[in-house]
Design a protein around this nucleic acid. Sequence first.
DNA 1: TGCAGAAATTGGTTGGACCATTGAACCACT
DNA 2: AGTGGTTCAATGGTCCAACCAATTTCTGCA
Lengths: 243, 243
Amino acid sequence: MTDFLPPIQTTARDDAVLKALAGFVMQEKLGPGEKLPTERILAERLKVSRNTVREALTRWEGLGLVERRQGSGTYLKAAVSLDMLHMPLTLAGGNDFAGLMSTLEIRRALEAEAAALCAVRAGKAEIAEIERKLDIMEEAFQTRAGMSSDEDWEFHQAIFRASGNPLFEQIIAAMYELFHRFWEHPLGVRDFGHASFPYHRTIFNCIAAHDPEGARAEALKLIATVEDDLKRGAANLKLSDRK
Amino acid sequence: MTDFLPPIQTTARDDAVLKALAGFVMQEKLGPGEKLPTERILAERLKVSRNTVREALTRWEGLGLVERRQGSGTYLKAAVSLDMLHMPLTLAGGNDFAGLMSTLEIRRALEAEAAALCAVRAGKAEIAEIERKLDIMEEAFQTRAGMSSDEDWEFHQAIFRASGNPLFEQIIAAMYELFHRFWEHPLGVRDFGHASFPYHRTIFNCIAAHDPEGARAEALKLIATVEDDLKRGAANLKLSDRK
DNA sequence: TGCAGAAATTGGTTGGACCATTGAACCACT
DNA sequence: AGTGGTTCAATGGTCCAACCAATTTCTGCA
C-alpha cells in the first residue's frame, strides 16, 4: 500500500503567483535593482485580484527579496529563482549581554571556519580584494582613532565572500544588525574593538599564505579579544548600574 | 556640514499593526499553538482595514511565526516579542551537490562549536536527555538496518539545545529542510550515514566527560564521514549519468 | 444517544474606489 | 542654462463590501 499521497493542492493562489513571478524573473533575467511589473499589470496578466498579488509581494518583501517604493514601483533586492529555499530566523531579545554573547559564539564558529576555507580556496583576485579592505580599514583606524567598525565589517565580509560558500555571507549578513546594535552602544567601553585590531592582519597573512589552520587560530584569537572586551564592558555596566 | 539626515518616518500602517499585535501577544501571554483574534476583530479593534491586518499577518506567516487555517483561525507557531529580530535567509539552488556541500560546511562549523560548548555547559539533566536520544537512535539503527535519520536528527538537536545557546538550535533547525531534501534521496548511496554512526557515541562520551576539545574533534570526524559519503555518492551519480 | 445536515465562523479572493508619494514633463522667471 | 514651481500620470498603500471555501458548532431527527 502506498501511503505517500502528496497533499492535494486545492487553492494556493499567492504561492502560485510567487512561482509564476519567479519564473518571469528568471525568464527576463532580471537582477537586483531592476524593476518588476506593477501590481496592476501583474494582477491582470495572472488573472488574479490585485490584493492577491499584494499578499504575494508582501511575503517577498518580508523575506527581503523585494523592495516597494510607493509612487515608483517594486524593485528586486536579490536574485530570485524557482528553487529558492527560505529559512527565516527570528530570534528574540538580543538586547542583553547574554544575547550578544550568543551571537558571538555563532560568529566564532562561522568566522573560524570561513577563514580556514578562505585560506584554502581564495584565489589571487580574492586575496587582493581582502587586502584592499584591510588597507582601507587600517587607514580608517589610524585616521579616526579606532572608529572603523564599518570598514572592519567589510573586511570580514570579504573573507566570507571568498570562502567559496555563499551561506557564510548570508548568515553573517543576516546577523549584521544584531552585532551592530551593540557596536553603537559598546557598553561603555570606549576603546571597544581596539584589542582585536592587530589580528586582522595576521588573519590576512595566513589566508595569503594558504595556511588554513593558522587562519582559523588567528580568527579564534580575534573573537576571543572581542569577548573579553564585552565581558569587561558588562562588568563596567554592572558597576555603574549600582551607582 | 552634517550630511547625514535620517529619512523621516511618515506612515507604516502594517508595521504598526504588527507592533500592536506583538504587544497584545505579550500582554496576554500567548504561547505557541494558541489562537489569536480573528482578522475581522483585529481590524475593528485596531481601526484599520481587514486588508491591512492581512498584509501584516502575511508577513508573520512568511516568517513562520504564525499559521493560518481557513475556517478555523490564526495560530501562533513560535514565541513572539516586541524586540524580535528577523533574519530571513534565502539560498538559491540547493538542489545540487555543491549546495549540499555548502550546508555541510555550515554544519561542520556549528556542530563542532556546539559540541564543545555542550561539553562545557551541559548539566546532568541535559546529558541524560542526550543519552536517551542516543539510545533511541542506536535502537532504531539496529532494528531498521541503518534507517535512523529522524532519531539521528533528534540526537543532534538535543546537543544543540544543551549548548546553552538558542541560536544554534534555531539556525540548524532552519536548515533542517535543506539537509533532509537529500537524506531522502541520498544520491544512490544505500548505506548513507552508516559510517558516521559510531561517532555519535564518541561525541556523547566526550560531552559526558566534559571534554570540549574531544567533543569538537569527534564532531568534526562525524561530519567528515558524511562528506565522504556524499562525495562517493556524487561520483556514483556521475557514473550512472554517463550510463 | 448518535449522527447527518444546517448554520455560523473564519480565512481566502475579488473588484472597485480613493489616498499619498513619486517622478517626469512643462512652464515661468531669472 | 538653470532654478524653482505646477501639473499630471503612474504606482504603491489603504479601505470597503461582498462573496467563496474550509472548518467548526449547533440543531434536530431517528
